[in-house]
C-alpha cells in the first residue's frame, strides 16, 4: 500500500510495549536471577554465579530433568500414534462431516484443564470408577489396584491434555494435500500402502513436525498433571520449579531450572526450523 503507514506503526506500539515489559524483560530477569545467589532472607544478590546450574545438573536433580524429557517424549509419541490415524480418517473419509468431526475431536480440549486432569483422578483413584468396575466384576475383597502415582498415569494425563495440538496441524496438512498426487500414484499402479508411505506421509510431515513441537513443548513445562496424577517419584521439572517459587523454595534455583527448560525449548525450535528448511530444499530439488 501507499503512504500513510504511520498509523500502522502507531498500532504496533501498545502490543510491542506490553510484550517487552511483561515478556521479554521478565525473561531477562529470570536469566539474571538464575545467576544470582540468595542471601539469608532469601532475596537474590545479583552476580555471575553458576551454582544454581551446577545443582540443577547434580545427581539429585538430573533424574528429574531426564524423567521430564522421557515423559514428554513418550506422551508425544503416543499422541502421534493416536492422532495421525484419526486426522487421516477424518481428512480422507470425513466427506461433508469433516469440519464437524474435527470440532468434535478438539472439543474436549475446551473443557477446563484441571477438570480434565481431575476426571482421571475420578477414574483411576483407589476409590475411583475403574476400581469400582473391577470390584463389581467379581474381584470383591481384593485390595484396590493402584493406578495413580505411577509413570503411566502421568504420561496418560499428558496424552489426554495435549492430544488436540497434534490432531489439528496433522489434519490441516492432510486436508491441503493435493489428491491428484495420490490419484497419479494409483494410476501408476502403486499399492495403497506404497502411496501412503511414499506420497501421503512425506507430504503430511510438516504437520507432524508442527504437532510434535506443539505437544512436546507444553508437556515439558506441565506440572499440574504430575502433581495430581503422580507422586514424588513422578515429579517433573515443572513441579520442581513450582516448589522453588512456593514459600520454602529458592527462587534463584527455580529461575535456573526455568532457563534450562527454555534451553530445551530453543533446541526443539531450532531442530524444527532446521528440518523445515531441509524439507523445503527437498521439495525444491
Amino acid at each position: 500500500m501507499r503512504s500513510g503507514r504511520a498509523i500502522f506503526r502507531v498500532l504496533l506500539l501498545p502490543g510491542t510495549l506490553w510484550l517487552a515489559v511483561l515478556f521479554v524483560i521478565p525473561l531477562g530477569l529470570v536469566a539474571a536471577v538464575s545467576l544470582a545467589r540468595t542471601n539469608i532472607v532469601g532475596l537474590p544478590v545479583y552476580g555471575l554465579h553458576l551454582d544454581n546450574y551446577k545443582s540443577a545438573f547434580q545427581s539429585y536433580y538430573l533424574p528429574v530433568i531426564f524423567r521430564t524429557v522421557e515423559y514428554a517424549g513418550a506422551a508425544t509419541a503416543i499422541i502421534g500414534v493416536l492422532a495421525y490415524p484419526t486426522a487421516y480418517t477424518i481428512a480422507r473419509f470425513g466427506g461433508r462431516l469433516k469440519n464437524a468431526l474435527i470440532v468434535l475431536v478438539i472439543l474436549p480440549w475446551f473443557v477446563d484443564y484441571l477438570v480434565r486432569i481431575y476426571a482421571w483422578v475420578v477414574i483411576l483413584g483407589d476409590n475411583g470408577t475403574l476400581n469400582g468396575i473391577l470390584h463389581g466384576l467379581g474381584l470383591r475383597g481384593s485390595p484396590p489396584v493402584q493406578f495413580l502415582n505411577r509413570p503411566w498415569a502421568v504420561i496418560g494425563g499428558l496424552v489426554y491434555t495435549y492430544f488436540p495440538f497434534m490432531v489439528l496441524p496433522v489434519y490441516a496438512a492432510l486436508e491441503q494435500l493435493d489428491h491428484q498426487l495420490i490419484e497419479a500414484g494409483r494410476d501408476l499402479y502403486a499399492s495403497g500402502r506404497r502411496v501412503f508411505w511414499h506420497i501421503t506421509l512425506p507430504l503430511s510431515s510438516p504437520g507432524i513436525a508442527a504437532g510434535i513441537v506443539l505437544t512436546f513443548l507444553p508437556s515439558l513445562g506441565d506440572f499440574a498433571t504430575a502433581q495430581l496424577l503422580g507422586g514424588p517419584d513422578t515429579y517433573m521439572v515443572g513441579n520442581l520449579i513450582a516448589d522453588q517459587f512456593s514459600d520454602v523454595g529458592d527462587i534463584t534455583f527455580g529461575s535456573a531450572l526455568t532457563i534450562v527448560l527454555m534451553s530445551v525449548l530453543l533446541v526443539v525450535i531450532l531442530g524444527y526450523l532446521w528440518t523445515g528448511s531441509r524439507r523445503a530444499r527437498a521439495v525444491r530439488a
Binding site: V21, L22, F23, I25, P26, L27, L29, V30, V33, L217, P218, L220, G221, D222, F223, G238, I241, A242, F245, I251, G254, S255, T258, L261, M262, L265
Partner: peptide, 12 residues
C-alpha cells in the same frame, strides 16, 4: 511453556 512465562511474570 506456560510455566516459564508465569515464572517470568511472577519475578517482575
Amino acid at each position: 511453556p506456560e510455566i516459564a512465562t508465569a515464572v517470568a511474570a511472577l519475578l517482575i
